[in-house]
């Protein structure tokens, strides 16, 4: 299954995505971490996420760019967290894909999903604050928006998490989530 989990910042989407992995996995689980630890705040965020999945039996693969070459063959279920960081890395890091970020990332997703049974991708809603950003930030928003739409088109399940409550926009879960 290919699953996309989206939501705002602090909405509980990571916790929900992890719970999906726990329910779906029938074998080894991998967490692909994309947040580059560039300052104290990111270290704190990473520590919080590590703590959250501590006892859930994940292996962790740090992947800041070049998802295409991630080897996940040993895993049944993979959780990629999160798309918004991966895109920022590809767009702005020296070894990133720059202009070719979107296509490289989508190719990476295809590669990864070809190697495992379930891929769960956490992404982000950064599109509704009504603020007009500078052209560079707008380019980033557009890139994430495009990737989200591509992912959702092929995904079996698209879930938006609102303050810990999952709302299903596409597909069906065997669980009792709200369909919208």
């Amino acid at each position: 299954m290919l699953i996309v989990v989206t939501g705002g910042s602090g909405s509980g989407k990571s916790e929900y995505a992890e719970s999906l992995v726990m329910r779906l996995a029938a074998g080894p689980k991998l967490y692909i971490a994309t947040m580059y630890p560039f300052d104290e705040e990111s270290h704190r965020r990473i520590a919080r996420h590590r703590l959250m999945r501590k006892d859930k039996g994940f292996d962790t693969l740090e992947c800041y760019t070049d998802l295409k070459h991630a080897d996940v063959r040993a895993y049944d279920t993979v959780l990629l967290e999160c798309m918004s960081n991966l895109i920022a890395n590809e767009m702005y890091q020296e070894d990133g894909a720059g202009e070719r970020s979107a296509e490289e990332i989508l190719a990476g997703v295809e590669q990864v999903y070809g190697q495992c049974r379930n891929l769960i991708i956490v992404t982000n809603e950064i599109f509704s604050d009504g603020i007009d950003y500078d052209p560079e930030t707008a380019r980033y928003q557009r890139c994430l928006g495009n990737i989200n739409r591509h992912l959702a088109r092929t995904a079996d399940l698209l879930v938006e998490v609102v303050y810990s409550i999952p709302l299903v926009h596409k597909g069906k879960t065997p669980w009792d989530e709200v369909s919208v």
Partner: peptide, 24 residues
């Protein structure tokens, strides 16, 4: 809250995060 680009100001980021966690 939380459906926008990460705020530049640290307090704004904290406030947005806190509101999310409390509401969850």
């Amino acid at each position: 809250l939380g459906y926008g680009v990460v705020p530049v100001d640290q307090f704004d980021r904290e406030y947005r995060e806190k509101t999310g966690r409390v509401c969850c």
